[in-house]
């Protein structure tokens, strides 16, 4: 299987504090990989390194075939990223956001025009082409933000708590979009605090105190920890944490 992320002993220290402590794992093409952990466990730091935004202190990481330390610009160009906190420009229109992100990711002009029509049609947003993003309901914004994040067909998309605060129906529709992207071969790397969403992932890793303390399919993790659901697994692991960042 093609590996889209390969990480060995990846470590990040801030002074005396080891935020990420020798983590090693692989993520495969088309996989939905859940990246869980308590607040302060090191998820955000690890994710920033994987996106080429923060150089590691030691260890090695390849994302979409590029070294996160020496080729961070190539990494940035070959991934997609979406978070709940930052996604789209509210004061730009729907088509302007698509145009902007397409341009940033280097999609040729004529292709942007063609793909914008396709995208708006697929989402049923044709009427909203000229609407300002701030006027859209939250659920629509999130669907649009996800589509924009994968507009340049990256090998992998990073989703940082993409569904926070969304109503239950929209949250599920969002996950159906994630499945479609994965079926097309896009790898999905996702963090969430909703433990039912952890069940939707092919494999899940759980970080505790900067380390990856568990990594497997939700089914195997539930067996291993004798838990009925992923919340049970998470509670057992996170309570082990000695780090009191929170």
């Amino acid at each position: 299987m093609e590996k889209v992320i390969e990480v060995q002993n990846l470590t990040k220290k801030f002074g005396d504090f080891t935020a990420v402590d020798h983590i090693s794992f692989e993520v495969y093409k088309g996989e939905i990989f859940g990246f869980l952990g308590a607040n302060g466990a090191g998820k955000t730091t690890a994710m920033r390194m994987l996106c080429g935004l923060l150089p590691p202190t030691s260890g090695k990481g390849l994302v979409a075939g590029f070294d996160i330390h020496t080729q961070s610009e190539e990494v940035k160009r070959n991934i997609g990223y979406m978070s709940q906190k930052f996604a789209l420009y509210e004061d730009l229109k729907v088509w302007e956001n698509i145009r902007l992100y397409g341009g940033i990711y280097g999609v040729p002009e004529d292709e942007i025009i063609k793909k914008t029509d396709e995208l708006l049609k697929r989402l049923g947003f044709e009427k909203e082409r000229n609407s300002f993003v701030k006027s859209l309901p939250l659920g629509w914004k999130q669907k649009l933000a996800f589509s924009v994040a994968i507009f340049h067909e990256p090998k992998i998309v990073f989703l940082d708590e993409p569904t926070g605060g969304v109503d239950p129906v929209t949250r599920r529709q969002f996950w159906e979009m994630i499945y479609e992207a994965a079926d097309r071969g896009i790898t999905v790397f996702v963090t969430t605090h909703y433990m039912d969403e952890a069940e939707y992932c092919d494999r899940v890793s759980i970080m505790v105190d900067g380390r990856i303390d568990a990594l497997d399919s939700p089914k195997n993790l539930k067996n291993q920890f004798k838990a009925n659901n992923m919340d049970g697994v998470f509670q057992q692991l996170a309570r082990r944490a000695s780090r009191k960042a929170d």
């Binding site: 952990g37 605060g165 605090h193 433990m195 919340d231 998470f234 309570r239 929170d246």
Partner: peptide, 13 residues
């Protein structure tokens, strides 16, 4: 007002 938004399951509990 939404004291537990963005908070992990253990801290929420």
């Amino acid at each position: 007002d939404e004291p537990t938004t963005g908070v992990d399951p253990v801290s929420r509990r």
